[in-house]
């Protein structure tokens, strides 16, 4: 269980301070996949960085805190201060750009052993990693291959293998399927779901793709302008979106056969590209497990 207490994260650039995440309070239960959606600049990546514990200048936590509610590999409770020691032990990360997140001049096997999370016996790690990658549908030769010899899907499997190999309690996946074609994307997502069911850990998935969220996640977190505007069980959020911004995100999903938007989009964008949505402070539980930030009814009105 991860609890965010009135979390505010800012960037200090020169003498200016920009609040990228502004007062987020919520609880992420254990053993579920949480999808995080929102437009670029809404603060999703900053929030993920903060939860992962990658807080370095110019970014800092200006208010609030994160309670991790789980113990590290040394038995001590994990906090923002010591979470770096838990990287790729009890918390791991799947990066956005799987295509170039592997060192091009080093074999895959070596990239399984070159960080402190692995134990000293490199040979044992390699054997276990080979077996583990086998379970993810990768042949043993992958371990002795260089990244450029693998396809995009295989590389993303390797990334997921790296992130799950240590059975972490929390995985943060930052747009894990953005660079992949839809067929491979589906395979990767199914793999992620299978692994989650098996290990029963918590996965936070950032994605722009509402379809991905609908298929994969148990809970949805919608961010807008540094705030959480809606948070709830995925089914509930998709069936009955409360906030105008959530509605717009869900409506933006194209449906095959629906051509009502043809020719409309361009003019609509030309007329009112600069939308603004009202965001209130704090979340209100409108249904069981479904929270929304009640706007001061300026929703949908252009700024």
């Amino acid at each position: 269980m991860i609890r965010l207490n009135d979390l505010k994260i800012s960037y200090r650039i020169g003498s200016r301070v920009i609040d990228a995440v502004d007062g987020v309070s919520l609880t992420i239960p254990e053993g579920c996949i949480v999808g995080i959606a929102g437009e670029s600049g809404s603060g999703k990546s900053t929030l993920m960085k903060a939860i992962y514990g990658d807080i370095q200048a110019p970014m800092y936590i200006s208010r609030g805190s994160i309670d991790y509610g789980f113990k590290g590999s040394d038995g001590k409770p994990v906090t923002t201060a010591n979470i770096r020691d838990e990287w790729f032990k009890t918390i791991s990360y799947v990066p956005q750009s799987s295509m170039n997140s592997l060192n091009p001049v080093i074999r895959i096997g070596k990239q399984f052993t070159d960080f402190p999370g692995t134990d000293r016996d490199k040979k044992r790690v390699l054997e276990r990693a080979t077996a583990f990658l086998g379970k993810l549908g990768l042949p043993a030769e992958v371990m002795t291959s260089y990244p450029h010899q693998l396809s995009g899907g295989m590389r993303q499997r390797v990334m997921i293998g790296l992130a799950t190999f240590f059975q972490p309690g929390l995985i943060i996946a930052d747009e894990p399927t953005t660079a992949l074609d839809v067929v491979v994307q589906k395979e990767i997502l199914m793999l992620l779901m299978e692994l989650q069911e098996e290990m029963n850990n918590t996965i936070l998935v950032v994605s722009h793709d509402m379809g991905v969220h609908y298929q994969v996640t148990h809970k949805m977190l919608i961010m807008y302008a540094g705030k959480v505007v809606e948070y709830g069980d995925t089914e509930s959020v998709f069936a009955d979106p409360q906030h105008a911004y959530t509605k717009m995100l869900i409506d933006s999903l194209p449906t095959i056969g629906d051509d009502s938007m043809r020719g409309v989009m361009a003019s609509a964008a030309g007329a009112g590209g600069d939308r603004a949505f009202g965001v209130g402070t704090g979340l209100v539980e409108v249904k069981p497990n479904h929270f929304v930030s009640l706007a001061n009814e300026t929703a949908g009105v252009p700024a």
Binding site: W87, F88, P95, S97, N100, S101, L102, N103, P104, F115
Partner: peptide, 11 residues
Amino acid sequence: PYVTYARLKGA
């Protein structure tokens, strides 16, 4: 990205 990723791996 691979250097950033290595940092986030804790290397």
